[in-house]
Design a protein around this nucleic acid. Structure first.
Lengths: 239, 239
DNA sequence: GGTCCTGTCCGACGATGTCGTACGCAACGG
DNA sequence: CCGTTGCGTACGACATCGTCGGACAGGACC
């Protein structure tokens, strides 16, 4: 096919086969699967080994390598994120008197990965694992605005202008997104490369989160931003 | 460098830059970042577009594409998995009278992605989002045994023999893995390609899960296997 | 309207990717 | 124990393909 780099197309086909076979095939089988001579496939696999897009066990079988898996995962270990965030989230809940949630994009969807209850006796529901609409919650709006990948599911087209506004302000707020009478404010959390890897937010009664003009109270925004910056420093961002 | 395919190494460098920049760079910036002439970088990017390892917006900026992200995610959408599994998990909890958990590998770690409580009045704790040790729980043992990727964190070297046994039997059991006096049994769940994408398990008092010889009751194993097969069919596996 | 810069196309050319041959090694069967 | 088979890997010839300079269209900016 003119105009394309044949060896890249062949390498992509090899990676599809390796991914689909789950580390069970050697060079002979991979060559057969992609329709290439064995030595051609071996030559391509040797380079894929070198750039760590594949790895090879002692029996000669190939699996996807960390070099490729890290590309796909955006360099973020959700467990590390939660580990780094939990102390800051606990402290933020205490200082602000509000519930704290941390959300990330998982498969283009907004997922709560950490949740600290409001420090009082009220009945609360643990949100970890739940999906949030990208357009109607502060956490979702932040991730939609700052996400490194363009495709965020569930974002209405009319939300694009909101995205620009959120990027400019550095925070998003919602009113009633979680439940009637409540409000929330969220800010981005950056990872080691400076890319936004999560959103950190507080939520509680609308009258404590918002001021008289239905804007989030600046003191609360500053608290959330300070906590987000602390988490980012622990993740290795020094911007 | 002799012995490697130069265009593959260059493409890998381009993908690193695209991944790290989060969709903000055009061909001129990418070429500068990898030290190549603009037309060379463009030629490689055109092929990466063709195999969907990158995508390009209307302003000409490149981001990682679904073709590469799908390789990295093992073709599994956690949300789809939970959606397909939830009815089977509910039914299994009712039929077996035990708590049901579904776990997947996320970043080489065993994570509970769905949890149905035992259908009684007892106090229970929601596990979704928690990490499990790979070697000490039935769910973890199943994922360690059948996982497509080799690196599963937390698996002691001595567990390799257990891996072989689990693969042969098609299930794993634990006693006391969740809490003292309890036991669990888990089986693999296959995705559309036949690869194991999750583990499905039940847990409860040891005397109801295990028989007199500390083996899981075959009737329970069969129930879990039937549910796992039902989930697999919904995910597109017809093996 | 002119300038600047980007992304893209085209085609010459020589460097590199392709792949046949060969080999070492391990597994297997008689 | 020995011969056979098949795997993964190395080597090198050669022609195909990847590289990249020049050119151009188009948009942004002044």
């Amino acid at each position: 096919m003119p105009g394309t780099v044949q060896s890249l197309e062949r390498a992509a086909a090899i990676l599809q086969v390796v991914a689909g076979s789950g580390g069970t095939l050697g060079v002979t089988d991979i060559a057969a699967a992609v329709g290439l001579p064995k030595t051609t496939a071996h030559s391509l696999l040797r380079t894929l080994l070198g750039v760590r897009f594949v790895e090879q066990d002692r029996e000669g079988r190939y699996a996807l390598g960390q070099g490729l898996l890290r590309l796909g995962s955006g360099h973020l270990d959700v467990n590390e994120l939660r580990s780094r965030a939990s102390n800051w989230a606990d402290a933020l809940a205490s200082r602000s008197g509000h519930a704290v949630r941390l959300a990330s994009l998982v498969d283009a969807q907004v997922v709560v990965v950490h949740h600290v209850f409001r420090p009082d006796d009220s009945a609360q529901v643990l949100d970890v694992g739940t999906l949030l609409p990208a357009g109607r919650t502060a956490l979702g709006a932040v991730l939609a605005a700052f996400a490194p990948h363009r495709s965020v599911r569930g974002l209405p087209d009319t939300g694009r202008a909101e995205v620009t506004a959120v990027r400019a302000r550095g925070w998003a707020a919602d009113e009633g997104g979680h439940q009637p009478g409540s409000a929330a404010v969220a800010v981005p959390v950056r990872g080691s490369t400076g890319l936004v890897v999560a959103a950190l937010g507080i939520a509680g009664p609308a009258e404590t989160v918002l001021d008289g003009r239905h804007q989030p109270r600046p003191r609360l925004v500053a608290m959330v931003q300070e906590s987000a910056q602390g988490i980012a420093r622990e993740l290795g961002w020094h911007g």
